[in-house]
Amino acid sequence: MITEIVQFKLPKDMQRARVIELFEATVQRWQSNSDLIRKQYLYDPATHTGGGIYLWTSLDAAKAAHDSAWCDMAEEIYGDRPDFTYFETPLVVDNAAGSVLRNV
């Protein structure tokens, strides 16, 4: 498994309600991606930063989902080109589901 952290700067005048509205518009896209295990949306009003934390089946899946066309779209919508960080993820503790995902 791969954890991908995506971050981008938001326009200083973009209100929280608009950020959430834009995020909500992407939910179906991510739900239909069979390589995505989990996604958390990120928003920090103090630094005007948005993004997401994704748990993927593989690095290839992460990079395929966030290709140059996706980066272009994100830049057009949010006003900034995203930055990406990747981590191998050997274990995930999911207290809500009462499970542990292992990739060891």
Rank of each mutant, 00 (worst) to 15 (best):
K9P: 05
Y41P: 08
W70K: 05
T85K: 15
I77Q: 05
N33F: 12
Q7L: 15
G79I: 07
D94S: 00
D72E: 01
Y86A: 00
E88R: 06
L10R: 09
D83E: 15
N103T: 05
V92F: 04
N103P: 06
L59M: 10
R16A: 10
S99K: 12
V104F: 03
N33P: 03
L59Q: 06
E4N: 08
I2P: 06
H66F: 09
A69W: 06
V92T: 07
E24M: 10
K63I: 04
R16M: 12
M1P: 14
S34F: 13
Q31R: 15
E88V: 06
A62R: 01
A64W: 04
Y78I: 03
K39D: 08
S68E: 11
G51T: 05
S34G: 00
K63G: 03
L36S: 05
A64Y: 02
D67M: 03
C71K: 11
Q40V: 15
A61M: 04
V6M: 14
P11G: 13
F8T: 12
H48C: 11
L55I: 14
V19M: 08
I77F: 03
D13Q: 15
A25W: 08
L101D: 06
T26W: 14
V104M: 00
G50K: 06
D83H: 14
R16F: 11
S34N: 13
D67R: 01
L59G: 01
M14V: 14
R29D: 13
G50V: 06
V104A: 04
V100D: 05
R102V: 11
Y86S: 07
K12C: 13
